[in-house]
């Protein structure tokens, strides 16, 4: 496993906070996904070995929880809330606007590898619907016009990096 030294250090800090090492499965998977972008088969085995578990004990967690993924995604992750309060205020149209902007269907990575668009379930900000998370940041009241603004910002950031 090729993890950054600071990830390894944080992993060692996390484990003693639980009387039973197995409890550290979720936090370790979060740390590894933040570092590597996804949970590889190697990572699953590494976590199992580190915590004294069978690999299946870790794999069953990875496959259950929606936030863990076994494949890499786009550089930016756009998560549009699909659930009722957001849908009532146009969440499906917001998602379609992002799909149009990046010419990619939800669940897929854009051709340039820049974004993955996903529908997710309730993000607990129903009063400012529709809401969207881009990476770790919540954006509120994202109608189609706002979705286009946010898309332009993502493209500008990508252009600046090149």
């Amino acid at each position: 496993m090729n993890l950054k030294p600071e990830t390894l250090q944080r992993i060692e800090e996390v484990i003693p906070h639980y009387p039973v090492a197995r409890s550290a499965v979720l936090p370790l998977l979060h740390l590894i996904q933040e570092d590597a972008g996804y949970i590889s088969a190697e990572a699953t085995e590494w976590v199992a070995a580190r915590l004294g578990l069978q690999p299946i004990n870790v794999l069953e967690v990875v496959t259950f929880y929606p936030m863990f993924r076994q494949q890499p995604i786009g550089r930016r992750h756009i998560k549009v809330c699909r659930t009722l309060s957001c849908a009532l205020r146009g969440g499906y149209q917001t998602c379609a606007a992002f799909e149009e902007e990046f010419k990619v269907h939800r669940g897929e990575v854009s051709a340039d590898g820049e974004v993955t668009i996903e529908f997710v379930e309730c993000l607990a900000s129903c009063g400012t619907a529709p809401v969207v998370m881009i990476d770790d940041d919540l954006h509120e009241n994202v109608d189609c016009a706002r979705a286009r603004e946010l898309s332009a910002r993502i493209r500008a950031a990508a252009a600046a990096r090149r």
Partner: peptide, 21 residues
Amino acid sequence: RGAGAYICGEETGLIESLEGK
């Protein structure tokens, strides 16, 4: 931190999740 599963709001499901399952 949880990882996106609604059922973790159910208290015994939450406990299982906190146990790493």
